[in-house]
Write a protein that binds this DNA or RNA. Structure first.
Length: 977
DNA sequence: GTGGTCTCCTA
DNA sequence: GTAGGAGACCACA
């Protein structure tokens, strides 16, 4: 920005409310979506951009930005917790417009700026200052008095609804003080809407008069005793501190660490097609026409954009998006006033209609195209740009996206319109050296070169099934797919627990068709890699999958809105794809030498143990065979059997063997020890080195996003969520998880997160108080239950209370608790009874949860994620009881899972903002995150990580219990944890 | 080779 | 008592 440049700063959030109340209601004709503020906004911005000379501003902007509030919580809440506390929820028909106006901003190709922790006004103040310092001018498009303190010779305001400019003279005229005294004036008068206290009895007139007389607030307050009017003097003295707090609330922060520099706000010529696509989606016909004329664009040739609609509790933040009801088919014209609007179609009706329409549709495999030249590929790219939608799948040589080589890419741009681009298919007659490639395939680099802009194009939604796989694969090729949707995750949000989410299952369930199986495509050789499959079959298989994904998306996406699950998908699922992909891509270093040494030691120990076991048993047998072991112990040696397994065998579980050992039997003791050693060896020290990726030298686990009922992740190949920790021997395995040289591992874990969630959801005063006070929660429980003082409490008493606390989370039963504690069932029953007497809220919560689940078939987390347990209505008592326990557990486990997801989603940006872009999140273990950081960044990183994790529920939910995170850094995972 | 069973590792 | 993944064994193809 340079001398003479002019920056326009539009107060987007302020405009929304003002336009909503000032403009007549307007609904989109095709679906009744309320859009009056959106139209007002678009008209206003268009006018500012095109006809600034005709408005009171009289200048044409060179720089432009639209600023929004991010959320209601800012640094002001720390100064004054009640700040904006009496803010009410926005009206129902305004909520979707928050997101739409952000979309509109993007359609205008204008920067859309918001920042967590700051209000729009602070960002505006910062940019206005920056513009002035750069020698330019700024116009703040707003009429909010809170912004008037910013007015100066280089900064003015413009009220777009009255077409009126506000400069220094206008501020003085209206308020009786110059702009620089507006802060003091507002500090005195307060503001009931924002809940700023001010001084009672002082309004704008008196305030202006006082400031005129005394100069400024500090002088006034220090000389308040001089004031003659009794009541006014008393109030000024009594409320002096409130006035000072008010001043800090009112004073705008003009040094926000903004992300976008001033130069990034430079105005570009309007992108006619992009803007028109949005305006058409909104069905603003006259503005569409005006924009088309001004930009020389043929509006008729442009398809309406796919526009997502925000709605729900978080809609005034960047949270939550809901798809518009209908995507490309909305051809209706006219900006319809409500009285002319036809009966609105509900999301439910539309979703049902689309679902019904999709079933049994033809799949014509002969129409799938095999793309073998760039011209054809470009044609498909153009199609995707037109529709704004692209379903895709990557075909590769491996199920591990960190090792897989790309064989081809399948695309779909409409139902039935799908193609396959073979890239690296091998000749069937290949020799042992790998043979030649099939002729006529495009080069990977060329194809990715053509696709990259499309995969990055913000106007084209990329749709995948388990998109994480393709995302990570292409990330390895330097491509970050965005924006995107994932049919698997949509299905998971819709039906976690009750249905499968694989492509075949979804296809059968929603489309009524079974896709060509991989085995069929590979002519029965299920093990051959995809590059060995001939092109014709490969095309059918891959293109059909892309086709199915496209059709599934058309059916599934509207279901989210219809079932009120958009926020779950948008806030908890979709963002995880890029977050998890990056984590998997980073991997973690595992020290081969350490594991190899341990394996050797374990081998020796195990061998010695085996000899001793054979001696004690009197024969050699397969110790690892529960069947053979059972025969030795309970047959040959005649030991008393304990529990039976499902298949009627005597159980040889550790618990049974421990009991026998406790009775003095030597062999069971040795078996238990042997099992521990061989378990550690086979599952960990032997297996882990095999997962070290030869290219990266690190271990890259795979996190499943849609495999649990509760919302937890799962980890596999290898599972890094079950690395031993409980025994000293096992724990040593963690020393093999190391930081790279010059770096440290940081482990940050939530303390008692599930019990905290329980205290919140079940609303248990004693638990909440104990957490607020930072007490030992198990000791507190014991003290409450058994009347034992916390100090000097016997360890056994605390242990029992701890078991009960965990039992509650797991949906307690007397049987389970008795088992866990090794006490009679009657005693366990008595404990539970006592617990419920002390904490009746827990019993209420459990009963309420079960009843809710029986009625609805699902339960919900704090954030609205659903877990389905239809079998809670089973007539089989044990099935029913099992589902009841699961239903009690799911909201607790699931809410905790949601919280850490939210932390993970925010983490990278938070670290980046703190200048810690070199701190990398590597692993998640349900309540723990593991990072790798350069030595010198560790001390700065820990507080950032802790802040993000402890604040992860906010602003979606205000937990009534604090979250606590412990974090530590070391060279290896054992010492860091 | 595949799938079921048993056992055991984690939160 | 909740939620997972994996290795070993073993019966079946």
């Amino acid at each position: 920005m340079k001398n003479g440049d002019h920056l326009f700063l539009v107060d987007g959030s302020g405009y929304i409310f003002r336009a909503y109340h000032a403009l007549p209601p307007l609904n989109r004709k095709s679906d009744g979506l309320p859009v009056s503020a959106v139209l007002g906004f678009c008209n206003m911005v268009w006018k500012l951009l095109k006809d600034a000379r005709d408005t009171a501003v009289g200048v044409t902007p060179t720089h432009f930005a639209v600023i929004f509030d991010y959320s209601s919580k800012t640094f002001r809440n720390e100064i004054f917790p009640e700040y904006k506390a009496n803010r009410t929820e926005p009206p129902e028909d305004l909520i979707p417009q928050f997101g739409l106006i952000r979309e509109a901003t993007r359609a205008f190709d204008l920067p859309c700026i918001e920042m967590e922790g700051y209000e729009a006004d602070d960002l505006i103040a910062t940019y206005a200052r920056l513009a002035t310092e750069a020698g330019g001018d700024a116009t703040i498009v707003s009429s909010d008095k809170d912004l008037m303190q910013l007015v100066r010779p280089t900064v003015s305001m413009y009220d777009p609804m009255k077409d009126r400019q506000i400069g220094i003279a206008e501020v003085i005229e209206k308020w009786g003080v110059p702009p620089e005294k507006m802060i003091d004036l507002q500090a005195l008068t307060g503001d009931s809407i924002d809940n700023i206290p001010g001084v009672p009895g002082i309004g704008p007139k008196t305030a202006a008069q006082l400031l005129e007389e005394y100069g400024d607030l500090d002088t006034l307050l220090s000389r308040a005793h001089e004031i003659r009017q009794n009541k006014r003097r008393e109030n000024l003295i009594e409320y002096a501190e409130k006035a000072r707090i008010s001043r800090e609330l009112v004073r705008l922060k003009d040094d926000v660490p903004v992300e976008l520099p001033l130069d990034a706000l430079a105005l570009n010529p309007p992108n006619g097609p992009k803007l028109i696509a949005f305006l058409k989606a909104m069905e603003f016909s006259s503005l569409t026409r005006r924009v088309a004329e001004a930009t020389g664009t043929d509006a008729a040739a442009i398809e309406p954009a796919y526009v997502e609609v925000q709605k729900g509790a978080e809609a005034h933040g960047p949270d939550l998006t809901i798809p518009a009801t209908g995507t490309g088919e909305l051809g209706a014209e006219g900006e319809v006033a409500p009285e002319r609007a036809e009966e609105t179609e509900t999301p439910e009706k539309l979703a049902r209609k689309l679902a019904e329409a999709a079933v049994g549709k033809q799949f014509d495999r002969s129409r799938y195209v095999c793309i073998r030249d760039l011209e054809a590929l470009n044609q498909w790219v153009a199609e995707a740009r037109e529709t704004g939608l692209l379903a895709l799948t990557a075909e590769t040589t491996s199920s591990d996206p960190m090792q897989a080589e790309l064989c081809g890419i399948a695309l779909a741009t409409a139902p039935g319109r799908a193609a396959y681009v073979p890239l690296a298919h091998k000749d069937g007659s290949a020799d042992l050296l790998g043979g030649g490639l099939v002729d006529g395939q495009l080069a990977i680099a060329d194809v990715l070169g053509v696709l990259q802009p499309l995969l990055h194009d913000s106007a084209v939604l990329k749709i995948g099934q388990n998109l994480k796989y393709a995302w990570l694969l292409l990330y390895r090729h330097g491509i970050e797919i965005a924006p995107y949707d994932d049919t698997m995750l949509i299905s998971y949000v819709l039906e976690a627990g009750s249905q499968a989410h694989g492509l075949d299952a979804l296809s059968q369930r929603w489309l009524g068709t079974t896709p060509l199986s991989y085995t069929e495509a590979a002519k029965g050789r299920a093990k051959t890699t995809f590059d060995m499959i001939e092109l014709e079959r490969a095309t059918i298989y891959a293109a059909e999958n892309a086709d199915i994904i496209f059709r599934l998306w058309k059916v599934l996406k509207p279901q989210l809105a219809a079932r009120g699950l958009v926020s779950v998908y948008e806030r908890l699922e979709r963002p995880m794809i890029s977050v998890i992909s990056r984590m998997e891509h980073r991997g973690i270093t595992v020290d081969r030498q350490i594991l190899s040494r341990m394996s050797g030691e374990f081998a020796q120990t195990a061998a010695a143990m085996e000899e001793e076991i054979y001696r004690l048993a009197g024969e050699r047998f397969t110790i690892g065979s529960p069947k053979q072991l059972g025969e030795i112990l309970f047959g040959k040696m005649g030991l008393p059997g304990g529990a039976k397994t499902k298949s009627g065998q005597w159980s040889t579980s550790a618990q049974v063997l421990e009991e026998l050992a406790a009775e003095g039997h030597e062999l069971p003791r040795r078996i238990v020890d042997w099992r521990q050693v061989t378990k550690l060896k086979s599952t960990y020290t032997d297996a882990l080195p095999g997962y070290i990726n030869p290219d990266t030298g690190r271990v890259h686990t795979s996190y499943a996003l849609a495999s649990t009922t509760t919302g937890r992740l799962s980890s596999s190949e290898p599972n890094l969520q079950n690395i031993p920790i409980r025994t000293a021997e096992g724990r040593k395995i963690r020393t093999a998880f190391v930081a790279a040289p010059g770096r440290k591992l940081i482990s940050a874990d939530y303390s008692q997160i599930e019990l905290r969630v329980l205290a919140h959801v079940a609303d248990i005063p004693q638990l909440k108080q104990a957490f607020a006070d930072g007490l030992d929660i198990h000791a507190m429980t014991a003290s409450e239950m058994f009347g034992v003082p916390i100090e000097g409490m016997p360890a056994e008493v605390r242990r029992r209370a701890k078991a009960i606390n965990f039992g509650i989370i797991y949906g307690i039963s007397a049987f389970g608790l008795a088992n866990q504690l090794g006490i009679p069932r009657e005693e366990a029953s008595a404990y539970i009874k006592r617990y419920f007497e002390r904490f009746p809220g827990i019993r209420d919560y459990m009963e309420h949860t079960k009843a809710f689940c029986r009625e609805h078939g699902y339960v919900e987390t704090v954030f609205g994620r659903r877990a389905y347990y239809p079998e809670i209505r089973s007539s089989n008592p044990s099935v029913r009881a099992f589902n009841e326990r699961a239903a009690i557990n799911a909201p607790i486990q699931g809410s905790a899972a949601d919280i850490i997801r939210r932390a993970m989603i925010r983490m990278d940006a938070a670290l980046q903002d703190a200048g810690l872009g070199n701190v990398q999140m590597l692993l998640q273990v349900h309540d723990e995150l593991v990072f790798e950081a350069p030595d010198e960044a560790v001390e700065r990183a820990i507080p950032v990580i802790r802040t993000v994790m402890e604040g992860a529920a906010w602003p979606a939910r205000a937990l009534s219990v604090p979250l606590k995170v412990d974090a530590r850094a070391a060279d290896n995972w054992d010492e860091a944890h």
